[in-house]
């Protein structure tokens, strides 16, 4: 899914529009970064509250949605750093024992936790945020080439470590 590149004024209505359209994705990424769904949701709410307050800082050099993704990601990172959680910060499944594969999933979690932070973040934005190269690049202020290389590296690491899981 593309992050819209049209210029949008950072009005309250514009911010609210992005919030409502992408709320589920924002929470899922924030939950992955903070390690907890409730904490992730809290980070999203606080990130948007701060975005309202500082909306004058939006310079329309990229899309409003990309600017808000940065706000959410930064907020989630700050929350995790303050909480001194395990660097993985990967949300635990609500019912880990019920999926029938606790041991395999624990391996996958560990693999993800061991990824470099940038690879982990790009992975979350791709699969939980449903962003494409362009959207991830805008959100993280990096080139699309770097995004592609980072995602490719993350994929390769997961495939090397979890052939049993991903081969199913």
């Amino acid at each position: 899914m593309n992050v819209p590149s049209r210029r949008t004024d950072a009005t309250l209505a514009g911010i609210e529009d992005v919030y409502r359209r992408k709320f589920a994705e924002f929470v899922r990424v924030a939950a992955a970064l903070t390690g907890d769904v409730d904490t992730g949701r809290d980070a999203v709410q606080d990130a948007f509250a701060e975005a309202i307050r500082k909306r004058w800082r939006y310079r329309a050099e990229g899309s409003l949605e990309a600017w808000l993704w940065r706000a959410v990601v930064n907020r989630a990172h700050n929350v995790r750093r303050r909480a001194r959680r395990h660097p993985a910060g990967f949300a635990r499944a609500e019912t880990p024992a019920l999926n029938g594969r606790p041991a395999v999933d624990a391996d996958l979690r560990a693999t993800i936790a061991a990824l470099p932070e940038r690879q982990r973040l790009v992975l979350f934005l791709r699969y939980f945020g449903d962003l494409d190269y362009r959207g991830i690049a805008a959100a993280l202020e990096m080139s699309e080439g770097t995004v592609g290389a980072t995602l490719h590296a993350a994929h390769a690491a997961l495939r090397r470590s979890n052939m049993e899981v991903l081969g199913d």
Binding site: A24, V27, R28, A31, A32, V37, G40, R41, F90, A91, A93, E94, N99, R101, D105, L108, R109, L123, Y127, F128, L158, N162, V165, L166
Partner: peptide, 9 residues
């Protein structure tokens, strides 16, 4: 795999 270990919130 990711959807399984972290379903949509």
């Amino acid at each position: 795999a990711l959807d399984r270990i972290q379903p949509p919130a």
